[in-house]
Design a protein around this nucleic acid. Structure first.
Length: 575
DNA sequence: GCCGTTTTCGGCCCGACTGTTTTCAGTCG
């Protein structure tokens, strides 16, 4: 069984144990194991073979044995028995807002409810309200949640939430009562998708702020409205939470609600080890002999400083080892949007782009880019109007003429997004590819290969001297299509060994290669290029989403080809 | 189930809101 499947299995075990009523800490251990596996940068097979799984903090003997069994045999008796003891439909009930393990358990044991349909019927018949711990209101809420479940389950691309967040923040900051306002949560951490959006406000009088927030245009329902917290559901399905705190607590709360959960746990452990208890309300001394920290906290930087840490940007607060680095003053200079000096991986009308070559160059020039790499599709991508050899070489001539014309300040590199065929060979002969300035190799077909075949296919492409970089290495489309089966640690090894670049595809629905893999890969020498994969002029600014991903992946300008000057890139491409 | 300058037991982050209660459990983040 593969790593991601095992992670899913661990997460499922956590849910099943919770439903069975096992202790919360045991549940957390499995949940934790699931997250560890999801974020694992090493090759799981190598860890299993070497018997070093328990060297990972959070994986003890019991979990290691179970992971090993799943990896080698794909079976786990413990899991099978557990799964058989609880009907599958019961697990689904947890997706309903307001229903957790305890309530679901009560519904299952006392009313024999094993499915959403059965629960809907029981609510309609009024049986749920009769259970102790439940009531009429709970029953109504359950019914409403079931009816909206499809919408409520949806996550949203970060890029889709961004304009809404900006609109709400602007509105909040414009209110006279509001002293400070910011967003928090996974949106502030630049996660690739968000489930809901959190806002935090500093104000003495929360009531008018709550009123403004819960009556915003586009609000479909108000799911909570208390003294300091409100939640609303937008017509788009996006849930938004607002919390209001006094100014003195603002940065503690901002840090807390920005998370991540894992980061907060580690911060609190660090605080405890120094004799302090940290919460969203502030910091207090655990022992009476300690004086509380006396410095006022007027920023998150102040908060980190209290615990001997340099400022940790929200992007990397994922509970990895950011706190250890910050304690050593060893966080890198993360890349920023202003570092980007050129853009590769852009399409034109020649294949499936919307705009002409000239339009694209003009757009890049308007963004202040020193260079632009044009890469239309290759001949096998028939649906994308891939270029024949003749059309490809002709486009190369056009680009040379355009550079010679002096019409644009932006230099254009002639490239191609060349299909990696099923067997790992490239869509053009190397004699053709070698006439170009650079080549991006990409998988666009035969997504159903086994992991072994797909990995071998991509590795073979990376061994071709003509290839400069690898496009969207997993083929995922966020919230739409799962990545194809591929062993990324082996692909990364091959890229490093052959001096190839793996792109960060900055299209907001791809963001591929995933940020979780970058820190370690870059330390081992892998380079990237932040590529907009633009199919129109208005897509060129997508690089900004890619920069967010790069920051999450701990990347610095030195790891990124397109932070370099035109002269440096020309030298790199050995033109 | 994990972990250990409190190391083989006894901890494990902390608080708001809701709904059902009449002092609190469950859920959520």
């Amino acid at each position: 069984m593969e790593r991601t499947e095992i992670a899913a299995c661990m997460a499922e075990i956590a849910v099943l144990l919770e439903l069975k009523g096992d202790g919360p800490f045991k549940v957390r251990a499995y949940d934790n194991a699931a997250r560890i596996l999801e974020n694992l940068e090493e090759d799981l097979g190598e860890l299993v073979e070497a018997g070093t799984l328990t060297s990972i903090s959070g994986i003890g003997d019991a979990l290691a044995q179970k992971i090993e069994a799943l990896y080698t045999t794909g079976e786990l008796d413990f899991y099978n028995k557990l799964k058989a003891s609880i009907p599958a439909g019961v697990i689904e009930l947890l997706d309903i807002q307001g229903l957790g393990a305890k309530k679901v358990k009560a519904l299952y044991h006392k009313l024999g409810i094993e499915s959403l349909d059965a629960l809907r019927r029981a609510c309609e018949e009024g049986k749920v309200a009769e259970l102790s711990g439940f009531g009429k209101k709970t029953q109504d809420n359950i019914l409403s949640s079931i009816n909206h479940l499809e919408v409520y389950r949806q996550r949203h691309l970060w890029s889709k939430a961004e304009p809404i967040v900006n609109r709400v923040l602007e509105g909040l900051r414009g209110l006279p009562e509001v002293e400070r306002a910011d967003c928090a949560g996974s949106f502030r951490r630049n996660a690739e998708t968000v489930g809901d959006v959190d806002f935090l406000v500093a104000a003495e009088d929360p009531a008018p702020v709550m009123e403004w927030f819960t009556t915003l245009e586009g609000v479909e329902s108000v799911t909570a409205k208390g003294d300091t917290k409100s939640s609303v559901r937008m017509a788009s399905g996006l849930q938004m939470d607002l919390r209001v705190v006094p100014l003195a607590q603002f940065f503690f709360a901002l840090h807390h609600f920005t998370g991540s959960k894992d980061h907060n746990i580690k911060m609190r452990q660090r605080a405890l080890s120094q004799g302090f208890s940290l919460s969203e309300w502030g910091v207090t001394a655990v022992h009476e002999q300690h004086e509380g920290p006396v410095d006022s906290v007027d920023s998150e930087a102040d908060l980190f400083r209290l615990f001997g840490l340099e400022y940790i940007p929200p992007s990397v607060r994922e509970g990895g080892n950011e706190i250890e680095y910050a304690a050593e003053r060893a966080l890198p200079e993360f890349v920023k949007a202003a570092d980007i000096r050129g853009l590769f991986h852009c399409h034109t009308q020649a294949s499936d782009g919307k705009d002409s070559l000239e339009d694209m160059v003009r757009g890049a020039e308007a963004l202040g880019m020193e260079y632009l790499g044009i890469t239309d599709h290759s001949k096998s991508s028939v649906v994308a109007n891939g270029l024949s050899v003749e059309r490809l070489l002709e486009q190369g001539e056009q680009i040379r003429a355009l550079n010679a014309s002096g019409d644009f300040k932006t230099h254009v590199f002639a490239g191609v997004e060349c299909d990696i065929l099923k067997d790992g060979t490239l869509d053009y002969e190397s004699e053709v590819l070698d006439q170009l300035d650079f080549v991006i190799a990409a998988v666009h077909s035969s997504f159903g290969l086994s992991e072994k075949e797909m990995t071998a296919r991509v590795v073979r492409a990376l061994e071709q001297p003509s290839v400069t970089m690898l496009a969207h290495p997993t083929g995922r489309l966020l919230l739409e299509r799962e990545p194809y089966a591929i062993n990324m640690p082996k692909v990364i090894d091959a890229a490093i060994a052959n001096g190839k670049i793996i792109e960060i595809n900055a299209s907001p629905r791809r963001l591929d290669m995933d940020w979780r893999l970058w820190h370690k890969a870059a330390e081992r020498g892998l380079m990237t290029s932040i590529n907009p994969d633009a199919h129109a002029v208005e897509h060129l600014p997508f690089f900004y989403y890619g920069v967010n991903v790069a920051r999450k992946g701990w990347l610095e300008p030195k790891h990124i080809l397109n932070t370099r000057s035109l002269a440096e890139v020309t030298e790199f491409l050995k033109l």
